[in-house]
Structure formats: structure tokens, C-alpha cells
């Protein structure tokens, strides 16, 4: 799957770039490096990478600005690298069009998992009509949700939420993105809707709703549907 996949790493720290290069090349990816935001934009235009890993803290320009300029002309998946305290930066980046984020420090496994998700989203053009995760099956064509063979009754809002999360399996969606997609743009600040509906979904779908395995909360950012 990683055959011929080019990854552009935009980070000013030489150690981070080296560690990423070693890890990614070991997994069979081709790595292109850029030290500054400006160089990153040029490189992405030259090499047309499949995935871009972008550090938010760059010396020459704001990472968010780099992202904005990239999004003007390319839909290449962008994974943001950020620090823990910068929830607002992460949310802003995701809302600007980043596909995912990683909080420093992160492990190679986490990084590779995120890259796989990103690749899957670029490659699978058409949505699979059938979603499976553990005991849960969702037939998107027939709007049918079954858990261990039994039909689960979901309200239309619950179903809309679930379908949205399935469509972006593995990706983090911000509160705003979810609210906008399901309720509409005038509801983007009503995060408590999400608290209530995700709790309900977990009650209906998770084995242990207190420790969800599928519908994961990303504190301060949003939610993510994780498939084992």
C-alpha cells in the first residue's frame, strides 16, 4: 500500500525530519523534506506529494498560513504536528482544511496509523456501502444498523452523526465540522448537542460506554471514529 507514496515533511527541526525520514522510509514511503513554509509550498508544487506532514511552528511563516496557501490549489491530505497546549491551533488547522493532527511527542505507530488513514481516504473514491467494526455493521445503502446481528434503533440525528463519522473513519472531525454538517452552520457553537448525542450513540453502540473503543473524544478538538 505504501508503494510509491510520496510524503512531504515540512519541519524546521533537523532531528524531527531525520526521525520521520528514517521511520517513513523504513515503512516504504518516499520522503521529501522542506525546512521552511515557503520551501514547503514550492516543494509540494514541484513534487506533488501524496501526503504532507506540516509542523505548525515554522520560523518563516505561520503553519496555518502555509496550510491556507496549500489549500488554495491542492487537496493533498495534510497532517499537522502541534504541541499539547495549542488546542486552538489544532482546531483552526482542522477547520482550515487539515486532515489530521498529531501532538508532539508522538510515536511512530501513531504517525503511521494516521498516514494510513489519510491514504485510505485519498484512494477509496467511492464509499463502501457496508461498514463493519467489531460486532457493529452499518449498511449505509439501507440505513440499517446492526449490533451482534440485532437491529439498533437510532434517531435520525444519531444516524446522521454516525454516518458522518463513518464517512471520515479514522479522521478527527472538529466540533464545528460535525455541527455544521449535521445541524447546519447556525449551530456551530452548540457543542453540548454533541455531548448528548455522542453519549447516546455510545450507550447504543459501545460495549462499555464509559470507556468507548470506537467513538473517541479528542479533548478540546472534536471526535474520531476509530476502527480496530
Amino acid at each position: 500500500m505504501s508503494e510509491g507514496v510520496h510524503i512531504l515533511v515540512i519541519d524546521d527541526e533537523v532531528q524531527i525530519r531525520r526521525f520521520l525520514r528514517i521511520s517513513l522510509e523504513a515503512s516504504g514511503y518516499h520522503v521529501i523534506e522542506a525546512v521552511t513554509g515557503g520551501e514547503g509550498i514550492t516543494r509540494s508544487a514541484q513534487h506533488r506529494p501524496d501526503i504532507i506532514i506540516l509542523d505548525l511552528g515554522l520560523p518563516d511563516m505561520d503553519g496555518l498560513e502555509v496550510l491556507r496557501r496549500l489549500r488554495e490549489w491542492t487537496a493533498t491530505p495534510v497532517i499537522i504536528l502541534s504541541v499539547r497546549d495549542d488546542d486552538q491551533g489544532k482546531v483552526a488547522a482542522l477547520d482550515t482544511g487539515a486532515d489530521d493532527y498529531l501532538t508532539k511527542p508522538f510515536s511512530t505507530d501513531e504517525l503511521l496509523a494516521r498516514i494510513r488513514v489519510a491514504i485510505r481516504h485519498t484512494q477509496s473514491e467511492a464509499q463502501e456501502p457496508l461498514f463493519r467494526c467489531g460486532d457493529l455493521t452499518v449498511d449505509l445503502a439501507r440505513r440499517l444498523v446492526t449490533l451482534r446481528g440485532e437491529t439498533v434503533k437510532l434517531t435520525p440525528t444519531e444516524y446522521a452523526l454516525l454516518r458522518l463519522m463513518i464517512q471520515h473513519t479514522g479522521k478527527v472531525l472538529t466540533h464545528q465540522q460535525i455541527l455544521r454538517a449535521v445541524w447546519g452552520p447556525e449551530y456551530v457553537h452548540e457543542t453540548h448537542y454533541l455531548r448528548v448525542y455522542f453519549a447516546q450513540l455510545r450507550q447504543k453502540l459501545e460495549d462499555n460506554p464509559a470507556l468507548p473503543k470506537m467513538l473517541i473524544t479528542e479533548p478540546g478538538v472534536g471526535y474520531r471514529l476509530v476502527v480496530e
Partner: peptide
């Protein structure tokens, strides 16, 4: 913001 306490506990344990 309005928080689901159970969700919060879960997130902490997950972390």
C-alpha cells in the same frame, strides 16, 4: 463549555 462528565472520565483514562 457543557461537558459530559462520563465522556471526560473516559477520555482521561484513555490518555
Amino acid at each position: 463549555e457543557w461537558c459530559d462528565v462520563c465522556d471526560l472520565l473516559g477520555a482521561a483514562v484513555q490518555r
